[in-house]
Amino acid sequence: MSESLFQRIGGAAAVDAAVDVFYRKVLTDPHVMHFFDTTDMDGQRAKQISFLTMAFGGPHEYTGMDLRIAHAPLVLDGLNDSHFDRVAGHLQATLEELKVDEASIAEVMAIAGSTRDDVLNR
């Protein structure tokens, strides 16, 4: 049996390597930075670990409803497709920077992309 995406990518260690790189990218992007909390950076980091674990095909307990509830206030603040695309772009750039292979990146981006309607509450 072939390895799962999460194993191929490097599991929890890969999430750990990616989370700071990814968070730094979104915090310096003027288009999306205001959606990311800097008063509770450790809490924010924990949320991003959950998100990356899910996107990397790892064990998670996210449901579509959780994503809807979590992002509902941001949608009221104007969160839309353009922001989703920027953050997805930062995720892809993070994976490229960490030298993840192209096929795995495509799988991660497909999982992340599948959350679009829930995140944007459509």
Partner: peptide, 15 residues
Amino acid sequence: VQTAKKRAFLAGAAL
């Protein structure tokens, strides 16, 4: 502490 934490992180320190 709060602003410096953000600056240190953006300057490359791991959180």
